[in-house]
């Protein structure tokens, strides 16, 4: 039998509110997100906090889902991804993990390094600049999701790349949002 007691203990000790492991669909993103939002509303925290947590969750999950579609991860059986929302030490942590092609790592690292080098004012400028750029045909995003997350986070985002095999790496990203 799957050790649910141990799983539950880990969830409890890490303050995990919601965790999902599997292929993301729009309806799943919507349902999980609304479940998280309803839970936060019951906690009577500031509306701004709820929106920040929800927004980071949406940007992460939609990024993962769009990437999976564009890079055809289902066909490679690599569309399993994770999203976790937790609350510990007075902060919400929103994390995602998904496979990415090794070829995409340099570009993504460069964008993340640029974002982490900027303060709030710099992020605001980069956000506006990126929004003003023409969206390439066929794009499903404006390329500002990462910047949006960084703007809502209270500290630089934490990310890692784990080599899976010659072709894929597992990318994890965590943003922390102030509780309250």
């Amino acid at each position: 039998m799957i050790n649910l007691v141990r799983l539950r203990e880990q969830f409890t000790s890490e303050g995990i509110l919601i965790a999902f492991n599997g292929a993301f669909s729009h309806s799943l993103i919507e349902e999980l997100g609304n479940a998280a939002k309803s839970y936060l509303e019951l906690e009577q925290i500031k509306p701004q906090t709820i929106i920040d947590v929800f927004a980071v969750y949406i940007e992460q999950t939609q990024n993962v889902k769009n990437y999976s579609r564009v890079r055809k991860l289902r066909e490679c059986k690599r569309d399993t991804a994770l999203v976790v929302i937790s609350y510990t030490g007075g902060e919400y942590r929103i994390c995602s993990g998904n496979y990415i092609h090794g070829d995409d790592v340099p570009d993504l690292s460069e964008r993340l390094r640029e974002i982490e080098s900027l303060d709030k004012t710099g992020l605001r400028q980069l956000y506006k600049k990126q929004l003003r750029r023409e969206t390439p045909p066929g794009a499903t995003g404006a390329g500002v999701g990462l910047i949006d997350m960084a703007r809502r986070a209270i500290a630089p985002m934490v990310y890692e790349f784990h080599r899976e095999d010659d072709q894929f790496q597992f990318f994890t990203l965590e943003a922390r949002v102030a509780g309250g």
């Binding site: 927004a55 949406i58 929004l131 003003r132 969206t135």
Partner: peptide
């Protein structure tokens, strides 16, 4: 709009 994601923000602009 209470919440708009980043691509909706682009459309709004």
């Amino acid at each position: 709009i209470r919440y708009m994601n980043s691509s909706s923000t682009k459309c709004m602009l």
